[in-house]
Simulated assay, not measured.
Amino acid sequence: MDPLADALADPGSSPAQLRALLRAELEHGQQELARKRSGYGRPVTVAVAPGGTAVAPVAPQLRADPAAVDDRAWTLVAALVGALVAAGADAESLTAGAQDGYLALHLVNADAELVALAFEEQLAGVDRLRARALVVPELAATDLRAPIGDGHPLLAAARIAALGGMPADPASVEQFEELLFDRAGEEATRPHDDPDPARRIARRILQRLNGMGKWGGYHTEFTHLARGFAGNDRKLAEAVGEALLDDGLLQSKPSVGQRHVFLNPRRAADIHALIERGVLPPTLRLP
């Protein structure tokens, strides 16, 4: 049985009936995403409506807090963002809000029918997750606003998709993240000009991760922190990376035997103060 799909195929279905059935699908999807294998008995559902609005079974708090969702939920959202952009949406128009307690997204000019097709392509090859996108006549998203912070992973996902990447595929993200950072531009305060070597490197590492959207959902190998540094600076960059981890500005997670790191959303104020003004948190001990 597939009550929502059946109701969508029935011209007599009322808006209230469709919304209730969608709410049930989103609740099921949220439960599935907490399992080790999601959507294998019944796929996780996202919905998209004409005009470029979509809803996914994850916490709407993601707009403000990249740590509000786990990796599986983030993969689903990244694929949805990628599908919206692939379907013609303006990547820079992304806003996020809520519908019935779940994350709603809106990107201008997305073709809903194409989103449903592109979503399947975006998830091709993703392990332990089976999901589908259904086109619904309308969605009642509220409080649609831009994600907080220009380096937010939602914005990074949209920009990676606009560059031709697949934001739910880590290999594709890695392929495009350098270009993403290059297009982010320099901070007005130019961390490169900081006269203190360790602080300069710390600011550049954090600036780079922010430009690539490495908050919560997106992360990178610890060894990548030293990229772009040479000679003694490279060894110092490795030590600075450890100091940033020790202080909690960066957080780590194991990933297929590699240590991956990401910016700690709970320390966003300290991170931006260090990047933009060179202000060191009192607890940070640089080498």
Rank of each mutant, 00 (worst) to 15 (best):
K36N: 14
A198G: 01
D100H: 12
G97K: 04
L286H: 05
A268N: 08
R159L: 01
V58A: 08
P11D: 09
L76P: 00
M166E: 11
A230N: 10
P43F: 12
D2M: 05
G278T: 09
G125L: 10
E174Y: 02
A67S: 15
F229Y: 12
D196S: 12
L206N: 01
V173I: 11
V108Q: 15
E276C: 06
V136I: 13
L84Y: 07
L107F: 04
F181D: 01
H106I: 00
P265L: 11
D182K: 06
V136N: 06
G165W: 07
F262R: 02
L284F: 08
A184E: 09
G97S: 06
P254M: 12
D193R: 12
S252D: 15
G82F: 04
N210C: 01
G278H: 03
E113R: 12
L4E: 00
L26S: 03
R190V: 13
R183N: 11
L236K: 00
N232S: 14
V77L: 12
T142N: 07
G213R: 01
L155W: 00
V85F: 09
P3T: 11
R19G: 07
G151F: 04
A116C: 14
A67E: 12
L245A: 08
A16M: 10
L80C: 13
V77S: 07
L206A: 08
E187I: 03
T95L: 11
G165E: 04
D233Q: 13
D169P: 03
G213P: 08
L8F: 09
P281L: 02
N109G: 09
A269T: 11
A184H: 11
A118I: 04
E186K: 02
M1K: 03
R42D: 15
A141H: 03
L180F: 08
A141R: 02
D2V: 00
E238Y: 06
E177M: 05
R19W: 04
R277T: 10
R63A: 15
A98M: 03
T142K: 14
E174T: 07
A161H: 03
R203N: 06
T53D: 01
A16D: 14
R128M: 13
G164T: 03
A202M: 07
A162D: 10
A198V: 01
G88F: 03
A198E: 05
R267F: 04
L180P: 01
L206Q: 04
L263H: 00
R204T: 06
A5F: 07
A171R: 10
A237N: 03
D182Q: 13
G164Y: 04
A9Q: 10
L154E: 01
V85T: 05
L62E: 00
R23V: 07
T220R: 05
P265V: 06
E187A: 14
Y102F: 15
P3S: 11
T95S: 14
L105Y: 05
A104T: 08
L225S: 06
V44F: 13
R267A: 15
G12D: 09
Y40D: 14
E121S: 13
